[in-house]
Design a protein around this nucleic acid. Sequence first.
DNA 1: AAAGCCATGCACCCGGGTTGCAAAACGTCC
DNA 2: GGACGTTTTGCAACCCGGGTGCATGGCTTT
Lengths: 127, 127
Amino acid sequence: MKPTANRILVLRAMLTAQYPVSLPEMVQTLSTMDKSSIFRVLSVFQQHHVVHSIEDGSGVLKYEVCGGADGCTLSDMHTHFHCEVCRRTFCFKAIHIPPIELPEGFSMESVNYLVKGVCSDCAKKPR
Amino acid sequence: MKPTANRILVLRAMLTAQYPVSLPEMVQTLSTMDKSSIFRVLSVFQQHHVVHSIEDGSGVLKYEVCGGADGCTLSDMHTHFHCEVCRRTFCFKAIHIPPIELPEGFSMESVNYLVKGVCSDCAKKPR
DNA sequence: AAAGCCATGCACCCGGGTTGCAAAACGTCC
DNA sequence: GGACGTTTTGCAACCCGGGTGCATGGCTTT
């Protein structure tokens, strides 16, 4: 995988963001790049396990840089929280996903643990 | 909430399906109803906690009839499995979602525990 | 019977995701 | 350095799921 200028841009944008970002958000941020280019960069990143996508109930996919140096393993996956008021997504990096036992014959590729509710900020400031 | 003919149709279709169904699927099945009608029926059902929606990584929302007679509580939520080969969604009704401890100030409204991978059927029949 | 309300169907819009295609950038070999 | 093949990029367009505005029609209430 070659370190293209665009790829570096995307990766840097994702690293600086402290929460998972969506494609539309990146289109906003990286105004020099085209939507499809960002999309393709993200696809390549996913294939090479540099980033992974999560779904947070907002309806749009969010992307996140994988944790470990050797890509992201299952144990590295953490829980996510989607605030239904401010629509932000939080990574609870400290809270790992509790494992479950799959039925016979089923093999796991990835896990998503998503909590929806009200975040602490929005709980404090009632509108 | 009135038991309209259409609402009965939708509810019956959901009860007979043994896995969560998507809106497009219901449009296919209930050919007499319009997409927007089904959509609105599902919205009403969700407001009255008759059904709830889950996201299974396929990109489209799936709907499922709530379990308990008094609507679906958090403890009633179960895990879901999305097969990346046949694109079916399984309800592991027996496997409840293991709880996590949220940080201070965060309140939970709903939980989604989604596993992606290969189901037992697709594991048997290699293509 | 008249008025009001709600459900329905139709058309349409919106926005995220995705692809086809042609131009541009890059790397390589002579 | 020039020609060539490969990869990446930008543009345009498409697909599809979700959602809405509006007018009709049926049912209820007075």
